[in-house]
Simulated scan of single mutants.
Amino acid sequence: MSDNSPENRRAIAWRISVYFAALFVVPGIHLPFFSVWLQSRGLSPTEISVILASGILLRLVAGPMAAHAVDRNGRRRQAIIVLTWLSLAFYTLLGWTEGFWPMLGIWLLHTAAWGPIAPFSENIAVLASTRHNLQYGRLRLWGSLSFLVTAYLAGLWLKGRDDNWIFILLLIGMLGLALGSHLLPDLRLPLNRPRIAGAPAMRLMRSPLFLAFLGANACLQASHAMFYTFGTLHWRSQGLSDAQIGFLWAEGVLAEVILFAVGQRVAQHVGGVGLLALAALGGAIRWSFTAFTGDFSVLVALNLLHAATFGCAHLGAMRLLAGGVDPDASASAQSLYSAANSALLAAGTLAVGPLFAAFGGLAYLAMLPLSLGGGLCVLLLWRQRSGLQFVTPAA
């Protein structure tokens, strides 16, 4: 079977799709319900913000350090396998830990292993899409679909049950991910190809266009800080049931899944930079209205904009990374992208704890400047939107 035969392409697409489905079971439970579990362990809103934000900040170090090694040795699959099993081990310890400081320590160990997994996974999917002529969006949509189904079913399962079931469900999800990581294809680059001179991360960070790209995506992703951290707690305070909350999380991602399915056509019309612009516009609308409503029917309409605020931003970023970065720097570029997102998301997460405690749902208004800031960074990329190149290998 040749490397690019139809049979091999289908096999690679299937393996990556199944892995993405396993990967997104974890955030499908974590994002809507993990803060609820932390609250059930006696932590305050500020302590919850600190735990979640500190883990996000740790990705700033863990991701790029691991990416530098992976760009040099090319062992992306092996790195993911080791990291998923380590993250499972540390997360298991968290369930038997009491008190803010011990929980923070174990959470940081878990996050150090967990942090590089998502960017390395995306890196494999982008490389496979380029090398085997696959559509990235159709690989990634299985992750979003998994998130959708998991969030909805978890909401139904948790209704009327003890909050400790949140931890148990997450443990099962992480075990499934660790097993699923062995399905990933082993994609390595030819040894005799031109390579990036010096540290790829340093070359990238000297590119003004890449810095504008990081700024745009960091702002757009950080605008979800209130939604990710206190969305469920806020909706509970508004009288929504866990089943309704699970539906809202899942329904927003359904719009994202549809976008990923047709994303190739959308991107051909507006391009990667155009997708980022749509994300900025969607965020300005979504957060402005979410701050003032607890009506379920209105929230159903607003959550469809998740296809713009997250889906367009992510699909646009992956398209720009695939075309603008040489494969030898791809893991570093992916990790810097993830680290920049994590840095601003951590700051936003820290900020929304006191804001939510003081103002409740009006804390969503603090997300509006982030969407607008992302739009300003997009303007810096607009003139170079055709054939955007961040860094290429040395001759």
Rank of each mutant, 00 (worst) to 15 (best):
E47C: 04
S237Y: 08
L148W: 11
L299W: 03
G252P: 08
W37C: 13
L380S: 07
P208F: 07
E122Q: 14
H269I: 08
D71I: 06
L380R: 14
W101D: 06
I172G: 12
K159V: 08
L179S: 09
S2L: 15
S342G: 10
R161G: 06
S144Q: 11
G239W: 14
L187F: 13
W249Y: 10
S40C: 14
H314C: 06
W382M: 07
W14R: 15
T229K: 07
P369F: 11
L23G: 07
K159F: 11
E122N: 15
P369T: 02
H182C: 04
N341P: 00
F167P: 02
W96L: 14
L139I: 12
G246P: 00
A346C: 13
G105P: 00
H269P: 02
E7D: 15
F100Y: 06
C219T: 09
G160P: 04
L60W: 04
S44A: 01
S44C: 05
G143N: 04
Y91Q: 11
L370W: 06
L189T: 02
L254S: 07
P116S: 06
F230E: 06
Q39Y: 00
G282Y: 14
W101E: 09
L362I: 12
H68C: 06
M174I: 06
C377M: 15
A366T: 07
V378C: 08
H182Y: 14
A301P: 00
A307C: 12
T293Q: 09
A125N: 05
I29F: 10
P45T: 12
H182F: 15
A280P: 06
F289Y: 14
R193Y: 11
W107M: 07
A222D: 05
A351M: 10
L83W: 03
F24D: 00
W157N: 05
N341L: 14
P327Q: 03
F359E: 10
Q244A: 14
V270R: 07
L209N: 01
A178C: 08
G215E: 08
G294D: 12
P190D: 02
T150D: 02
L281G: 07
E251D: 05
R193H: 13
F213M: 04
V325R: 00
S121I: 07
G311Q: 04
V378R: 02
L108A: 14
S338E: 10
R15E: 12
L60S: 10
Q264M: 04
D3V: 12
W157A: 13
G173V: 00
A333D: 01
A280C: 07
A347V: 11
L355G: 09
F100N: 04
N73K: 13
L148R: 03
L184H: 09
M205D: 03
R72A: 02
W235H: 04
H234A: 15
G272F: 15
F230I: 01
L350S: 03
L177I: 00
A308F: 12
F390P: 00
